[in-house]
Nucleic acid binder design. Structure first.
Lengths: 155, 155
DNA sequence: TTGGATGCAAACCATTTGCAGATCT
DNA sequence: AGATCTGCAAATGGTTTGCATCCAA
């Protein structure tokens, strides 16, 4: 995960202006393990910046995503963001359905996957959903019935 | 893939009424290999049913998805639907970035994936994006530059 | 006959845009 | 100073809802 300073650094090096809001945004993402929706961000930021408007949040999320400091993922219940993984190399994620924290896994199944050679592979997605240690022990989880967000019948 | 009649059968057996529109809808999905957006469906259906309204399309798509005859997938550019795979068993898909046709693959990497045992796996997603034989030969494809829909940096 | 299906209009929500004024560099 | 940011308001696009009417069973 990128640190607050790495995020700010990246933004400033691209000619973006470092406003107070953007500093706070950088800190928020650097310190959050899970995914945040635009609304999450708006609510968090709103506590500090009273006149805050939603469009500024959207603008900044987009800018940061285009810049590569944020990763955008589309869940069933909408778009969410988190700080980019800084580990340079390719990896996948376990994603907690409860708290949405992610755990990296190094294993990539692509080398083992036989694809018809008429098909030209461009990219792939491999994500595992479930419940992390903390959420299991907190007892909030009813795995069998939970047809939760972020899921999709393992296609 | 389900056939027109299988779709109609399933709907009727659930007490849904088989209207003309729903027959056409069943046929459309049975005969379409790729994914269709609500707009695609609306436009197609609109040719036959002049007074067609968008909300009916949405309602039917939702009903059919809840019934299990359609599969819903969320792409970067929105929700899309296709007829459910009838092959009872678990499998994954290659998805063409150009025409969105899907090819099933039997290989599932989950058995080979080591997950921390504190993590309780619920489900997974494994999808491969690229260009199918037809789209490659039709020369419409510029793979290197295409930061296409339906994609997501293989995390 | 009658409850589900449809079309219409309007509501709703998330996201984007134009613009004027404020802020960073 | 000058370009970028921000807030506001309004537009947009996708999706849902309420209601009266219509139609399949």
């Amino acid at each position: 995960m990128l640190s607050t300073n790495q995020i700010i650094e990246a933004m400033s090096s691209q000619g973006l202006r470092i406003t107070d809001q953007r500093k706070t945004l950088a800190r928020l993402f650097a310190e959050t393990e899970g995914y945040l929706s635009p609304k999450d961000v708006y609510e968090y930021m709103g506590r500090t910046y009273s006149g805050l408007s939603f469009d500024t949040v959207y603008r900044n999320l987009r800018v940061m995503q285009e810049l590569g400091v944020l990763e955008q993922v589309i869940f069933e219940d909408g778009v969410k963001f988190k700080a980019s993984c800084s580990s340079g190399h390719h990896h996948h994620h376990l994603i907690c359905l409860q708290c949405q924290k992610t755990l990296p896994i190094e294993f990539c199944p692509m080398q083992l996957t036989d694809t018809p050679d008429q098909f030209q592979v461009v990219e792939h997605k491999f994500e595992i959903f479930g419940y992390c240690k903390d959420c299991q022990s907190s007892g909030k989880v009813s795995p069998k019935t939970d047809q939760n967000q972020a899921s999709s019948k393992g296609q």
